[in-house]
């Protein structure tokens, strides 16, 4: 059984604002029967067409989908459209006291519906993935190219969710967006997207710290391996594991496609350069078989 917070349970058992608004200013619809969840969100604006005065929803989905929708309608009331647009899926999850990670896609669905509703109201092109399945109709015009065929999810959408939620593994991406949760064929592509997003996140060049305690140094080495190096290897189907740190010596073992790869020596050298760059200049990377 899922470990739902009391707030999730309350919003599931006593959902706020179920229904529709016949003279709604904005309506956003996402999801489908085939996907297993769908949300239709109605927004009513004040006379100045600025503030949201009422919100209603209809949801097909599990308890957390219903609770996320209910929470969303409560959160947007009284907000201006721009304030509402600033609500992230994390905000929805936080409002509910947290969601099981496997259910984060429910909060993403809420955020998406809000975005669609406001974009449509403003007459913008709706830049959202269509949730069409490979067994459904042809994909209508949408931004980006389909990555996950099972759930009809595009690279543009995935990159956005990866970036805003700081996702680092394909499994997390599945929990947040469903992508990769069907046949699993797109998981390598998802790993590439993660690597790509992470690569672009080095906005300001990081500098090697002046002085490091042993403990700090070990932490930093681990951090660099996790954030900078492993995602790059994943993109090629490889991986590495940190075996030991002994003074300047950093021992790593290559895994998956990297294991026994003819160019693993080059990879070890790449790791060394990166660690020298970001941690300490005397680091020596050794490849071990373990």
């Amino acid at each position: 059984m899922w470990d739902y917070t009391p707030i999730v349970k309350d919003h599931f058992l006593n959902p706020r604002n179920v229904g529709d608004i016949t003279d709604a200013d904005a309506v956003g619809e996402v999801g489908s029967l085939a996907c297993g969840d769908a949300l239709k969100l109605y927004l009513k604006l004040d006379e100045n067409k600025d503030k949201i005065v009422d919100a209603k929803f209809q949801t097909f989905g599990c308890a957390s989908a219903i609770a996320s929708s209910s929470a969303l309608t409560e959160m947007v009331k009284g907000k201006t459209l721009d304030e509402a647009l600033a609500i992230s899926n994390q905000d929805i999850a936080e409002f509910l006291g947290g969601l099981p990670e496997e259910k984060m896609h429910c909060s993403v669905m809420g955020q998406e519906a809000l975005e669609v509703a406001i974009a449509k109201y403003r007459g913008h092109e709706v830049k959202i993935h269509s949730h069409d399945h490979d067994h459904g109709p042809e994909y209508p015009d949408q931004e980006g190219t389909i990555v996950c065929k099972c759930f009809g999810i595009t690279d543009v959408f995935l990159k956005k969710v990866i970036e805003t939620n700081h996702l680092t593994t394909a499994e997390q991406v599945t929990h947040f967006t469903k992508a990769g949760g069907g046949c699993g064929g797109c998981i390598p592509k998802i790993n590439e997207l993660i690597a790509e997003v992470m690569g672009t996140q080095t906005e300001e060049p990081r500098k090697r710290p002046e002085k490091l305690s042993n403990m700090k140094k070990m932490q930093l080495i681990q951090e660099v391996l996790e954030k900078d190096i492993r995602p790059l290897l994943w993109a090629d189907g490889g991986d590495l594991e940190l075996i030991d740190i002994d003074g300047p010596k950093v021992q790593v073992a290559f895994r998956k496609a990297c294991a026994g790869c003819a160019s693993s020596g080059n990879t070890a050298r790449m790791v060394e350069i990166k660690l020298r760059d970001l941690v300490a200049e005397d680091i020596v990377v050794e490849e071990v078989v373990a």
């Binding site: 297993g36 989908a65 099972c150 949760g181």
Partner: peptide
Amino acid sequence: GSACTSGSLEP
């Protein structure tokens, strides 16, 4: 037999 109960995403 629903997806959401098992943590998988498909029925």
